[in-house]
């Protein structure tokens, strides 16, 4: 079953086709993630509607702060990409790292939100209405963690490329980094936006 070694024109691979495909994969993946939160928040609504043992409570303020932090993180990412496209690589790296750090602050603020819920008598294992917040915030947080890891990876790669790379070291943009940044930007805004959705959802459902 040895397979033949083929020769073919490399241009036939059509790398630009491929790049569009990658972007599409990311968008479809985001649709899948959206379904996860859509069905889970629907489940919450169904549970709430059965009226059995459902606590209503004001959402701890710290979650509003989380939302602000999420917006800041997105803003930082937006600027870091712009800096890269302007070939200001050093500033790009600094702001890129900043956006990841802001997202770590975001995770911390979520944790503080859990503490606040606990102080209100709503620990994780307490009333189901509270448990849903933990569940949604934690599963959302996992997506943030993934994003942060990828951002640090990108930071590391562009840091290493600052001297011994054909592109950045000569003040030129690396086309692969441009694509990667474009993809990552979409993801980053998407997961931060996802929190805003969850926040508004909680805000209106729990009042």
């Amino acid at each position: 079953m040895a397979s033949a070694v083929l020769t073919y024109n490399k241009n036939n691979n059509n790398l630009s086709k491929n790049r569009i495909a990658l972007k599409m994969m990311l968008y479809i993946g985001m649709a899948s993630i959206t379904m996860f939160f859509a069905v889970t928040t629907s489940a919450l609504l169904v549970k709430k509607a059965d009226g059995l043992n459902w606590a209503q409570f004001p959402l701890p303020n710290i979650f509003a702060l989380s939302s602000l932090v999420a917006v800041l993180s997105s803003l930082a990412f937006y600027f870091s990409r712009r800096l890269y496209l302007q070939a200001k690589f050093k500033a790009f790296r600094a702001v890129l790292a900043l956006s990841a750090i802001i997202s770590i602050v975001f995770l911390f603020s979520q944790f503080m939100g859990f503490k606040a819920l606990e102080a209100m008598g709503l620990p994780l294992t307490g009333n189901v209405s509270g448990s849903f917040i933990y569940f949604l915030a934690i599963t959302h947080g996992v997506h943030i963690v993934v994003g942060v890891v990828v951002v640090f990876f990108m930071w590391w790669k562009s840091y290493r490329a600052r001297l011994n790379n054909a592109f950045e070291a000569q003040g030129k943009l690396n086309p692969n980094r441009v694509v990667a940044l474009e993809l990552l930007t979409s993801y980053w805004h998407f997961v931060n936006g996802l929190w805003l959705y969850l926040f508004l959802f909680f805000y209106f459902i729990y009042q």
């Binding site: 996860f36 069905v39 294992t125 448990s131």
Partner: peptide
């Protein structure tokens, strides 16, 4: 792509009940 997230959510909530006591 659109349906499996529901199973993931179902399983996630189930494990929260099982392991964390919700």
């Amino acid at each position: 792509i659109l349906a499996f997230p529901a199973l993931l959510a179902a399983c996630g909530l189930l494990e929260f009940d099982r392991l964390l006591g919700t």
